[in-house]
Every structure is written in C-alpha cells, then in structure tokens.
Amino acid sequence: MPARNSWIKATFLTAGGAALAGCAGPLSTLDPAGPSAGAIANLFYVMFAGSVILFVLTIGLLLATLLKPGFGKSLSPRRWIVWGGLAMPVVVLTALVIFALAMGERLIASPLASAPERVEARASQWVWTFSYPDREGAADTISVLHIPAGEPVDIVITAEDVIHSFWVPRLGGKLDAIPGHENVLRLLADQPGTYGGVCAEFCGVGHANMDFVVQAHEPEDYAATVSGAATEASQ
C-alpha cells in the first residue's frame, strides 16, 4: 500500500508541476505584461471561476441526491428543471457573456487623442517582417519587432501569401494576417523587456518555426534602436 501511495503522490506532483509550468514563460497568457493581455487573463480567471461554480453546484446536487435519499423532494421535478436547468445557467452564462463583451470592447484599437506609433507586420511563409513607417529611414527588421514600452503601439498586420496570425501572448490577443487586408492590433508593454511571439494560424510546413520576439525599449531608447537596426541592416 505505501508503494501505491507514493506512486499516486508522484503522479500528482508531476502532473501538477507540468500544469503549473505553463503559467510562466515567454508565451504564457497567464503572465500578462500589458493591459490587453491583462484583460484576457482576467477574462480567463472569471470564466474559470464561473465554470468552477457551475461544476461545484451540479456535482454538489448530484452528491446530495446520492448520499441523502429524498433530498430535494420538496421541489417538484418541473421546478428543478426550470431553476436548476434553465435559470441557474442562464444567470451565470449571461454574467460571463456581459463580462466577455466588455473585455472585448477594451481590446479594440479605437482612435486616441494622439495617434499611437504605427508598426507594420507582414507575414509570409514562414517569417515575420516588421516596418516602421513613422520612423524615417528605419529599415525593416526580420523576426524582431521593436516597440516603445509604456506607450500604445498599433500593429498593422497583413500577409503576402496565405493567412497567418499574429500573436504575442504576454501582450495581447491574436489577430489574423490576411493577404490584401490590413488588421490593426493595439499593444502596450508595461515594462521594457523581451516577449515571445508566434504565428497562431497553421500556414504550411514551416508554421511551427514561424516565431519572433518583441523587444520593448524605454521610449527614449526606441528611436535610436530602430535607427540602429537600420544601420545594421545596411551594413
């Protein structure tokens, strides 16, 4: 029996460790580094809490009927169906939908008083190319996106061949890169640092390796860095 217990313990520890390992790292949505990703993480936690509440209520009622014969007899079957099967999920799901819609509105790149920095992201099989139209003379960068930290940046996303998807999990949601069409994603990194990005739409055999990094710089260093990238590119 002790050997069996230690196997159970080891299994739980391994599974728990593997699950918790996904909470951190350069591509973790549960370790947000900006307001958009923060809103998405909050949405996840609220959705998760909602599902836990519904699960506990449902299993609790099931266990009550199993362990205590006669439980719930005071209510007619019709009332059980209406309140437990209709009213309860409708209330919980309505609250979750309202919260999700409110969070979704916050993610939209609506016009600001002062226009944010614009960066163009072009996807092609299987590489990301970034341009800086607001910075005169700045050269394109391949697989490295430079942005200023602490300021909103509008990423204008498009593709040259097939549909791809731009995703920096720690900074925001994903948005499709579609040939002949421009989508705008607003990102903001709270702190300078390096954040991982990937293509989130299967786009061919090289899809799995179509990643990039976002380097968020202090605003005063950003212009120099982008110009430096131009110098490096020209050499």
Binding site: L101, G104, E105, I108, S110, N183, V184
Partner: peptide
C-alpha cells in the same frame, strides 16, 4: 434577442 441584441451597442468593426 440574446445573441443579436448586442449589435445595438458593440463596436461593429475592429
């Protein structure tokens, strides 16, 4: 009503 009601208020385009 529940599914399409939000077209009254939500942002229509990204």
């Amino acid at each position: 009503i529940f599914t399409f009601g939000p077209v009254v208020a939500l942002s229509p385009c990204h």
